[in-house]
Design a protein around this nucleic acid. Structure first.
Length: 720
RNA sequence: GCACUCUUAGCUCAGUUGGUUAGAGCGCUCCCUUCACACGGGAGAGGUCGUAGGUCCGAAUCCUACAGAGUGCACCA
C-alpha cells in the first residue's frame, strides 16, 4: 500500500497542530449539542449520558503557566475520554477578572510608568484594567487552544458578565435575608501597600528574627516585639489564676510612667493571658491585634487607632506622630531606654509575622467595618456532603485537610477596598438616634425609596473575587432555569490545583450547597504544583519559569501533555524536566513511524473484522489493555493509564508485534486493528498526533478521531 | 500548638485493595547506521525500598517508635 508522503519525515508537531485544532473547532463537536448520535443495534439513537467539567477560569492577566497546562491536560483527557465513550460532554471554559490579583498586576505596570492608582479617579482605573484584562483574555484563549483544550467556546463566560453579577447579588441578598451576612467592625488583615483588607487565606506567614523588648510597665514587666503600638495601652491583663499577681484585682488602677508621660493603667483579669509566656502580664492594643481586640470586647474596653492606614503613627504617638512604624521603633526604644523603661532586649527572638501574599509587606491588623459571611452553618452542610460521599475528594489526605479546615472555619471577610471587581450592592447613611451617631444600611443595587436625596451613598467596596468564583459552577450553567443547569448540574468533576482547595473548592462546595441545595460537583481531582526539574517552585525572580507555550513549540503539545501527566499522582507536586518532555516527543515520533509501517502493509480489503484475519491472542491482549486503561481513567489514575499505553505501544506493539509481523502479510488486519485502537486509547493524552495519523487511515469509522468510539466498555472496580 | 505528607537505582519519581526475579524517564558502560523509526535498535551496570521493632504463610505496601525533609491552618505578649 502507498504510504502518504508526510510519513517519510519525522512527525512535525509545529506543522500539524494548528490545522488539527481548527478541524476540531470547525466540526462543532466541542459543543455537546452538535455531537453525532450513537445508534444501538436496532438503529435507534442511544440516550446520551451527560458529562460536564466546568473549567477553572484562568486569570486573564498574563500568560498561561505550567500549572494551567497541567489542568488543561488533565481535564482535556477526562473530557475527550467521556466524549469518545458517547457521553454528551461539555467542558465549559471561562475567563477570570481575578479582582485583587489583576489589580496588583496592573498596579505594577502603573508603577513602572510612574503612575499610581491612588492618583487616578476610580472610574478611569477600572476602565484601564478592563481594557487590559479583555486584551489578555483573547491572548489567553489562543493559548488554551494551543494546548489542545476541547472546550465549548460558544458557552464561554467572563466573571464580570451580567449574568454573573446578577446571581452574585441574589446570593448576597439571600445571605442577608437568612441572617448569614453581617457588617461588623472587626480586626482585618490590612495591607498598607495595597490599601485593602484581605482574607486570612490571602496572607502568608514569614518567620522573622526580631528584637524582643522587655518593658517596665509600672510594677510589671511586659514583653513585645512591637513597642510602637504601645502608646495607647492603658489596660494590663493577667490570668485570673496567676498566683504571682493575686494581689491585683480586676479594676485596680495604677499610676505609672509610660512612653510619653504618666498614665493610669487598669488591671484586667482574662484567661487569654498565658502565665507561661514571659512574665504572664500583657498590655493590650485592641485596634491592632486580634487577641487584644477580643479581650477588649469581652471587658467592654475602648479602643483607639494608633497606626494609620498607610502604616504611620497617629497623633496619639506624640512626638513620633507621622513617622512610619519602621522608622519609629528604634527611636521609641531609645527614648524608653533613656527613661529607664527597658528592662532587657532579647536579640534573637523568632516569631512569625503575617505578610501580604502579593507584596510580602507586613500585614497591619486594623479594626475596620467590613461585610462578613457566617461560615459555620455553610460549612456544616459541606462536611456532611464530604463525609457522606456526595462529593468525593481525591485523595484521602486532601479530604482530611479539607475537613480539618471546614471544621475550624472562620467567618469570611468578603469586602475589598479595590475598584477591580464586582461592586457590593449596598447603601448606607448616617443616622442619629438617642443622641448617638449610627449607620443605616440597605442591601440592593438601588438606594431605598427616597433615594439619593435622603443621604444614601453607595458602598465603594467590591467583593472578594472568590466570593463570585465560589458560585461559578451554577452560574456558568445558568442557574436556576437554564437548560444546561438542568442537564449538567451537579457537574462530574472539579479539577483544580490543591493550592486553592480552601480559596475555591471548599467555598464552591459551601455556596453551591447553600444556593442550589446540591453539591456543585461529584468528584474533586486536585493536582499539585508544577515545579522545575530540581523541585524548586517556579518564579520569575528565580528565572526558572518553564513556559508551557515555549515547550509546546519546541517539543509539541502532545509531548508536553504526556510529560505533565505520566507519574503525576493527584495531590503531589510534579517536577517538570525538559528531558522528560523530550522523551515523549520521541514517543510521538515512534507512533508516527508505527503508522507508517502499518500503512505500508497489505491490508485486507474491507478490513472490518475479516473472519479469522485478526490474531485472536493479540486481540485479546490488546482488549485486556484497553479494559485496564479504561478502568484506570475511570478511577482517575491517569498517570498509570498514560504509562501503560506508552509501554504497550513501544515495548510490545512496536518492539515485538511489528517485528514478528515482518514478512508475514497475514498480520495486516491485526496490525491495523491494534494501530486503530491504540490511536483511540492514546487520543485523550496525545490528541494531535493521534488525530493526524487518523486522518491518513484509509478506512475509518468517523471523520474525526475525537468522536470515534472508545474501544472498551469495561467498567470495573469501585469508584472512588 | 493543631493537622497533613514524604523518605524506593547517580538524579527526578511511579509502584491501585500486602503475593512470584522491585519499575519508568533522564544519566552511565559496550555494541549496531539491517529493508517503520538514529526523535532508532541490541546488551549491560546500578536498589539490604530512611532506621529499629511488630502483625502475617508472606510487607516497599499494614501497626508502633525514632531520625530526616516538607506542607497547610491557627496563634504569637
Amino acid at each position: 500500500m502507498e504510504v502518504p508522503e508526510k510519513f517519510t519525515k519525522p512527525y512535525n508537531p509545529q506543522a500539524t497542530e494548528d490545522e488539527i485544532y481548527k478541524k476540531w473547532e470547525d466540526s462543532g463537536y466541542f459543543n455537546p449539542d452538535n455531537l453525532p448520535l450513537r445508534l444501538d443495534a436496532q438503529g435507534k439513537p442511544v440516550e446520551m449520558e451527560p458529562f460536564c467539567i466546568v473549567m477553572p477560569p484562568p486569570n486573564a492577566n498574563g500568560s498561561l503557566h505550567a500549572g494551567h497546562a497541567l489542568f488543561v491536560t488533565l481535564q482535556d483527557i477526562m473530557v475527550r475520554f467521556a466524549r469518545m465513550r458517547g457521553k454528551k460532554t461539555l467542558w465549559l471554559p471561562g475567563a477570570d477578572h481575578a479582582g485583587f490579583e489583576t489589580q496588583v498586576v496592573y498596579e505594577r505596570q502603573l508603577e513602572k510608568e510612574g503612575r499610581s492608582r491612588f492618583e487616578m479617579p476610580p472610574e478611569q482605573l477600572y476602565k484601564e484594567i478592563l481594557d487590559f484584562t479583555l486584551g489578555n483574555k483573547i491572548f489567553m484563549e489562543g493559548q488554551l487552544r494551543q494546548l489542545g483544550a476541547s472546550c465549548d467556546w460558544s458557552r464561554e463566560l467572563f466573571t464580570l458578565d451580567e449574568r454573573v453579577v446578577k446571581t452574585v447579588y441574589d446570593t448576597f441578598r439571600k445571605l442577608n435575608d437568612d441572617g448569614l451576612l453581617y457588617r461588623g467592625s472587626r480586626i482585618v488583615n490590612w495591607c498598607p501597600k495595597h490599601q485593602t483588607s484581605l482574607s486570612n487565606l490571602e496572607t502568608e506567614r514569614e518567620t522573622r528574627t526580631s528584637p524582643f523588648y522587655y518593658l517596665k510597665y509600672g510594677p510589671f514587666t511586659i514583653g513585645t516585639v512591637r513597642p510602637e503600638t504601645k502608646f495607647g495601652d492603658k489596660y494590663v491583663v493577667m490570668h485570673p489564676g496567676d498566683a504571682r499577681y493575686s494581689k491585683y484585682k480586676e479594676g485596680d488602677m495604677l499610676e505609672l510612667e509610660w512612653i510619653n508621660g504618666p498614665i493610669t493603667a487598669t488591671v484586667i483579669k482574662d484567661e487569654a493571658s498565658d502565665p507561661a509566656v514571659g512574665s504572664g502580664v500583657m498590655t493590650i492594643t485592641p485596634w491592632h491585634s486580634g487577641t487584644d481586640f477580643e479581650i477588649a470586647q469581652r471587658h467592654n474596653l475602648p479602643y483607639e487607632q494608633i497606626i494609620d492606614w498607610r502604616g504611620k503613627l497617629l497623633p496619639i504617638a506624640g512626638e513620633f506622630a507621622g513617622m512610619s512604624i519602621k522608622d519609629a521603633r528604634a527611636k521609641i526604644v531609645e527614648k524608653m531606654q533613656q527613661k529607664g523603661l527597658v528592662e532587657k532586649i532579647d536579640g534573637d527572638y523568632t516569631n512569625e509575622v503575617p505578610v501580604c501574599y502579593k507584596c510580602g509587606r507586613e500585614i497591619e491588623p486594623q479594626v475596620k467595618a467590613q461585610w462578613f459571611v457566617k461560615m459555620q452553618p455553610l460549612a456544616r452542610r459541606a462536611i456532611e456532603a464530604v463525609t457522606s460521599g456526595e462529593v468525593k475528594i481525591l485523595t484521602d489526605s486532601q479530604e482530611k485537610i479539607l475537613l480539618h479546615w471546614l471544621e475550624n472555619i472562620q467567618d469570611w471577610n468578603i469586602s475589598r477596598q479595590i475598584v477591580w471587581g464586582i461592586p457590593i450592592p449596598a447603601w448606607h447613611r448616617s443616622t442619629y438616634a438617642h443622641g448617638k451617631q449610627d449607620e443605616e444600611w440597605h442591601i440592593g443595587e438601588n438606594p431605598p425609596a427616597g433615594g439619593l436625596g435622603d443621604g444614601w451613598t453607595r458602598d465603594t467596596d467590591t467583593f472578594d473575587t472568590w466570593f463570585s468564583s465560589s458560585q461559578w459552577p451554577f452560574i456558568t450553567l445558568g442557574f436556576p432555569d437554564g437548560e444546561d443547569f438542568k442537564t449538567y448540574y451537579p457537574t462530574d468533576v472539579m479539577e483544580t490545583g490543591a493550592d486553592i482547595l480552601f480559596f475555591w473548592v471548599a467555598r464552591m462546595l459551601m455556596l453551591g450547597l447553600y444556593i442550589t441545595g446540591e453539591v456543585p460537583f461529584k468528584n474533586v481531582y486536585l493536582h499539585g504544583l508544577v515545579r522545575d526539574a530540581k523541585g524548586q517552585k517556579m518564579s520569575k525572580s528565580k528565572g526558572n519559569v518553564i513556559s508551557p507555550l515555549t515547550v509546546s513549540n519546541e517539543y509539541g503539545t502532545d509531548a508536553l501533555r504526556m510529560g505533565l501527566v505520566v507519574g503525576n499522582t493527584p495531590g503531589t507536586d510534579l517536577n517538570l524536566a525538559p528531558s522528560k518532555i523530550g522523551a515523549y516527543k520521541k514517543f510521538a515520533n515512534k507512533l508516527w513511524n508505527i503508522a507508517r509501517f502499518v500503512l505500508s502493509q497489505d491490508l485486507p480489503a474491507g478490513r472490518q473484522e475479516t473472519e479469522g484475519a485478526i490474531r485472536q491472542e493479540l486481540k485479546d491482549e490488546f482488549d485486556a489493555l484497553a479494559a485496564d486503561v479504561t478502568n484506570d481513567i475511570e478511577q482517575y489514575r491517569i498517570y498509570m493509564a498514560a504509562e501503560k499505553l506508552y509501554h504497550y505501544v513501544w515495548d510490545r506493539f512496536a518492539a515485538e508485534i511489528v517485528e514478528e509481523s515482518k514478512g508475514k502479510p497475514e498480520y495486516g488486519a491485526t496490525l491495523y486493528y491494534i494501530l486503530e485502537n491504540s490511536l483511540k486509547l492514546l487520543h485523550p493524552f496525545m490528541p494531535f498526533v493521534t488525530e493526524a495519523i487518523w486522518q491518513e487511515l484509509p478506512e475509518k469509522e468517523s471523520d474525526l478521531l475525537m468522536v470515534a468510539q472508545w474501544p472498551a466498555r469495561h467498567s470495573g472496580g469501585p469508584q472512588k
